Amino acid sequence: MLLRSARTLIGALTIVVFWALGAGWLAQPLLDLAQRGAPPGGQTVAPATYATRTAIVMLGTGTIHRDGKLVPPKDAIARIVTSAGLYARCKQVGRVCHVIVSGGNPQEHESTEADTYLPYLLREAVPRDDIVLENTSLTTYENARNVAAILPDGYYGSLILVTSAYHMPRALLDFHRFGMNPLPVVSNTRRATRGLLPRRENFFDAEIALHELIGIVQFHVYRQLGWF
């Protein structure tokens, strides 16, 4: 209302930004910015990385309903497969290997992330006795805080953190905040699809990237204020 003379320009810019997000031309730079600093996906972890006692921490990423069932989304499946692969290699060289699944129920579905992911880890040949469920955290900050609380001092000689590339930079900030220095292992990297027509997935990717970038800014602001 205050910029009536600029309505046409504002409207045109809004349409251009909306199109650039949906067509991938703006979504991909946002993803690149959010995923900057994360190690490449599919990296090989050297056998020497696994200590006598190793903890593999897998972070949750929500749950979705499919065919009337609550299931892990695509990114969560990638994290599960990656964590199970790390566990299998860990058992070849180490005596004690645990997968810690951290994820509560921020979406208020009928089950927590950790409990929903559990059957999928079992299918990937991770024994139930070697899985630790942390199913109360609602944010990445709480993931780190709650994992730190359940790690016995000096028990684990190696700590590995598994999450998606877009989530890794913010997750590391939170884990470092609680005195943990895990080896980051990326389960998957998101890529927008560039084209002429907007795609729903590109909007989703842009939303994820913005959420992570805002979360990183929030972390630093809260640290300066003494809230984190």
Rank of each mutant, 00 (worst) to 15 (best):
M1E: 12
S5V: 11
S5K: 13
T8N: 12
I15G: 12
W19R: 01
A20H: 01
G22Q: 03
L26K: 03
A27I: 04
L31Q: 05
L31S: 04
D32I: 02
P39F: 10
P40F: 05
G41W: 01
V45N: 06
P47I: 05
A48M: 05
T49V: 14
T54K: 06
V57H: 06
G62F: 02
I64L: 12
K74N: 12
I77P: 00
V81T: 14
S83N: 08
R89M: 12
C97P: 04
C97L: 10
V99C: 07
G103Q: 04
G104E: 01
P106D: 06
Q107S: 14
S111N: 13
E113D: 12
A114L: 04
D115C: 09
Y120S: 04
L122E: 13
E124Q: 14
L138T: 13
T140I: 04
E142K: 07
A144H: 01
V147A: 08
L151T: 10
P152G: 11
G154W: 07
S158Q: 10
S164F: 02
Y166L: 06
M168K: 05
P169T: 08
F178V: 15
F178E: 08
P184Q: 09
V186A: 03
L197M: 13
P198N: 08
P198Q: 09
E201A: 15
F203T: 02
D205K: 11
G215Y: 04
R223P: 01
R223I: 01
